[in-house]
């Protein structure tokens, strides 16, 4: 980490309690511009809670989030979006029967005339949609095709391109590869790489998959039972470390032994 680089998002000792249950117990992490930050951990580790706090869905019990150095508190997803945090959830918030362009601009159409009766500038919207998707690697031949006819990977790309176009500086990708086939997973990883290559956008990549994270991530944060059990850059963490932390801190050898005794 270059000493002058400032984190785009800094999360400081976030605690989140749901009644008696402590979902997050003092989690801190820094998301640097232009980096892919893999957030890893087992089910129930607190990944979802953390990103929902970043996306403005939940409010932290205590702790502070900083965006580009200034403290923020999000009361709604709208606040988070306005601060430049774009979340791409697993369902992608896409409408299958509508065209690519209509999905891209859903709720944020370009139009002339009085809202909401303004006439959409469809040619311009088609062009922007096409261009934005080419930037991160998919050349859709026909922006009027229905999203339902696209592959899972293409849909991910559409959702990501849309978030970037509408001002996301930080993209939160919630398990973008988990519901896809092998080939489409690669598609999504390529898309992540291309977004990274744009240089100014940070990605928080939530995944279960150690291999995927190692392929694209620059920095890692491992959560287990609501706490950070390890973090660092790719260089700082050797391959074995990642595997050990992935398993919630358990040694692979121990696991092998455990399995062998059954």
């Amino acid at each position: 980490m270059a000493p002058e680089a400032k984190p785009l998002i800094a999360v400081e000792s976030i605690v989140k309690k749901f009644g008696p249950f402590t979902a997050l117990n003092g989690v801190s992490m820094n998301v640097m511009p232009g980096e892919v930050h893999a957030l890893l951990g087992d089910n129930g580790a607190g990944k979802s809670t953390l990103i929902k706090i970043l996306a403005g869905v939940h409010q932290p019990t205590s702790g502070q989030i900083y965006v580009e150095g200034s403290p923020v508190s999000f009361r709604s997803p709208r606040d988070a979006a306005a601060a430049g945090i774009g979340t791409v959830y697993q369902d992608l918030a896409l409408n299958q029967l509508m065209s690519v362009t209509r999905n891209f601009f859903m709720g944020r159409e370009i139009f002339s005339g009085p809202a909401p009766f303004g006439v959409m500038k469809i040619a311009e919207m088609d062009k922007i949609t096409h261009d934005e998707m080419v930037k991160i690697g998919i050349d859709i031949s026909d922006p009027t095709q229905a999203v339902g006819t696209m592959s899972g990977g293409q849909r991910q790309t559409l959702a990501i391109a849309r978030a970037i176009y509408f001002g996301a500086k930080v993209l939160i990708l919630d398990e973008p590869t988990s519901a896809l086939g092998q080939k489409q997973q690669m598609e999504v990883l390529k898309t992540i790489k291309r977004v990274r290559a744009l240089g100014n956008i940070a990605i928080i990549f939530i995944t279960h998959n150690e291999i995927h994270s190692k392929l694209v991530a620059d920095r890692f944060t491992f959560l287990s039972l609501g706490e950070v059990i390890g973090s660092g850059t790719k260089e700082e963490l050797a391959g074995d470390d990642i595997r050990r932390l992935m398993a919630g801190g358990a040694e692979m050898k121990d696991l092998e032994q455990e399995l062998a005794t059954i």
């Binding site: 029967l97 709720g107 139009f111 809202a115 959409m120």
Partner: peptide
């Protein structure tokens, strides 16, 4: 052709994703 038309389609197709997009 209009913004409202896009909203009508979006609302009927999947209202959760329509709402998520504003």
């Amino acid at each position: 052709k209009t913004q409202l038309g896009n909203w009508i389609y979006a609302t009927g197709d999947n209202k959760e994703s329509a709402r998520a997009n504003g």
